[in-house]
């Protein structure tokens, strides 16, 4: 469970997040939509403290990330993150990408980490690519490796930062398929996305962020079919 309390974030003089509060429950799939520059990625990055929080609190399973005594590495190991540009480690094979963190953070042996990694690669449909290097993969394959890499830490929550935005259209489907499977398995997910179809189909709740606040939130049906706020209406009319 993620609790966000009056989260504020400023870059210099500019306040990007202006007091966000919400609770994301276990096994929930939350999609965050909004225009570019609205703060949706910043919000997501605050959930594992990749961005320092200016004020407010983020609690994951009761542990306050903003508390200086919190072991942030420990929290991060339980919160998987998938980036827009994949950020695979180019000097490591696919298998090494997936096994490095379990070995170094959890202290698994190489063998244990590999035994755990192969089913994950199987799951994302890339078991045959275990020994290739990221440069020879397509964008969609890279992103699926990135998902496997995050899953290898057995996270309680997965954060997705526009996971399909950098992909060629024909490659988006495979990545979304993997994400859907995850959602059906009961993974708690926060997904910043432009894929309204995915949000509609898989999301339990959709947040519409604009100008650093949650303008509107609701079930996909409510938000997409009957948006209340004028800003939501105008945004949806442009993207749907």
């Amino acid at each position: 469970m993620i609790e966000v309390k009056d989260l504020r974030k400023s870059f210099g003089e500019t306040e990007v997040l202006k007091g966000l509060s919400t609770t994301i429950y276990e096994k929930e799939v939350v999609c965050v939509i909004g225009p570019s520059g609205s703060g949706k990625s910043t919000f997501l990055r605050c959930l594992n403290l990749l961005e320092e929080v200016t004020s407010g609190h983020v609690l994951i399973d009761g542990t306050d990330l903003t508390d200086s005594s919190t072991d942030i590495n420990d929290i991060r190991s339980k919160v998987g993150m998938v980036f827009q540009h994949f950020n695979l480690f180019p000097h490591m094979s696919v298998l090494q990408n997936v096994t490095i963190a379990p070995q170094k953070v959890k202290g698994l042996s190489k063998q244990e980490a590999e035994d755990a990694a192969l089913p994950l690669l199987e799951k994302v449909g890339l078991a045959d690519k275990a020994n290739t290097y990221p440069t020879s993969l397509s964008g969609g394959q890279k992103q699926r490796v990135a998902i496997a890499r995050a899953l290898a830490m057995n996270p309680n929550v997965m954060l997705f930062d526009e996971p399909t935005s950098a992909l060629d259209p024909e490659l988006v489907g495979d990545v979304l398929e993997v994400m859907k499977d995850l959602a059906h398995e009961g993974m708690t997910m926060v997904v910043v996305t432009h894929e309204m179809g995915f949000a509609k189909e898989v999301g339990d709740r959709v947040f519409f962020i604009d100008e650093g606040i949650f303008m509107e939130e609701g079930s996909p049906e409510q938000l997409f079919d009957d948006p209340q706020h004028e800003r939501t209406q105008s945004f949806l009319s442009k993207v749907l």
């Binding site: 594992n48 990749l50 590495n73 420990d74 991060r76 190991s77 339980k78 919160v79 998987g80 993150m81 980036f83 540009h85 950020n87 695979l88 480690f89 490095i100 963190a101 170094k104 953070v105 990135a146 890499r149 995050a150 830490m153």
Partner: peptide
């Protein structure tokens, strides 16, 4: 690239 650091840190390293 900073994304490399972010990816590493996000895994708990």
């Amino acid at each position: 690239e900073d994304g490399q650091r972010e990816a590493g840190r996000s895994l708990g390293l």
